[in-house]
């Protein structure tokens, strides 16, 4: 669609060249100021005391733990949500059944809930005063203020990404290739590995990418369940907060810089994938 405009619009539907130039310049300057300055300030602050300080901040045991923890939480929650997202997309994108639209609403629900609430609900269930809190206590299990809580909060927040990317993609592609596969004698897994997965692979990767970015960068939800135990339950965004509040700006902005790099890589891969999928969509919402 966007190609339709590339040769220039018909004259009647164009603003005057001067107007266009002003609007374009204004928009670009605004975007750069508003969207790039925060990024620039992160890297500048991180580098403000030289590279040596960055190295010290990165090799700090607490920082290393926070990086490991972030990777661990993402490594658990992203695959879980990916598998379930594919399952959800399979039944919603390929079948009609009662309650289908309700299911879609439920899957998208976490997007319209405050991250703090997404953390709060797990405390209500598993916290010291939670429904299952005493039970877990007796069993010697810890969920809140421990890794399982971080995973649960992250899973809830990143729940919709994969399904939400795949459902419209699968609906658009239609079921006929899969139907062809089964008329040719393929069983479910043969159809899935040979036909479904190759067709959705870029979309799946897109969903996983967004899911991962959010999983590693989530703050509000994990802040509520983490308990802020230094060197134990601090993911990178939480570590950023703690260092910032300690006035260790170099430390805070160094870790923030790592997270910003993650964001930049995510945006780059996302743009590349959008090019591959051949569609533009605001699926990051």
């Amino acid at each position: 669609m966007s190609e339709a405009f590339s040769q220039g619009l018909p004259v009647a539907t164009r603003e005057r060249p001067a107007t266009r130039l002003v609007l374009t310049l204004f928009t670009v300057v605004l975007l750069v100021l508003f969207l790039l300055l925060p990024l620039a300030v992160v890297f500048t602050e991180a580098l403000s005391h030289g590279l040596g300080n960055i190295w010290d901040s990165l090799t700090d045991p607490e920082a290393i733990t926070s990086i490991e923890l972030t990777l661990l939480v993402a490594a658990i929650s992203v695959p879980l949500n990916s598998v379930c997202g594919v399952a959800a997309a399979w039944c919603i994108g390929r079948f009609q059944f009662p309650g289908r639209s309700l299911l879609i609403t439920l899957i998208e629900l976490p997007f319209s809930v405050s991250p703090v609430i997404s953390g709060l609900v797990w405390v209500l269930l598993f916290g010291a005063n939670g429904w299952f809190g005493p039970m877990l206590d007796r069993a010697g299990l810890r969920i809140i203020f421990a890794v399982p809580g971080l995973v649960l909060a992250t899973v809830l927040v990143t729940f919709p990404f994969v399904a939400r990317t795949l459902i419209p993609l699968m609906q658009e592609q239609g079921a006929s290739e899969e139907e062809a596969a089964i008329t040719l004698g393929a069983g479910f897994w043969q159809m899935f590995w040979r036909v479904t997965l190759p067709n959705i692979r870029w979309g799946l990767l897109y969903g996983v990418l967004l899911c991962n970015a959010r999983a590693m960068g989530e703050f509000g939800a994990v802040a509520v369940v983490s308990g802020h135990i230094r060197g134990q339950t601090m993911t990178m965004p939480l570590q950023v907060e703690a260092l910032f509040n300690d006035y260790d700006w170099v430390g805070a902005f160094t870790i923030a810089g790592l997270l910003s790099l993650l964001a930049l890589v995510t945006l780059a891969v996302k743009a590349a994938l959008e090019y591959r999928i051949g569609e533009r969509s605001g699926a990051l919402l």
């Binding site: 290739e177 139907e179 089964i182 008329t183 393929a186």
Partner: peptide, 20 residues
């Protein structure tokens, strides 16, 4: 009898060739 066991050749309207 599921579709995969019917041994029927089906040619789809838009062919449904596996594009990959």
């Amino acid at each position: 009898v599921p579709a995969r066991e019917r041994g029927i050749g089906f040619v789809f309207q838009h062919y449904a060739l596996f594009r990959h």
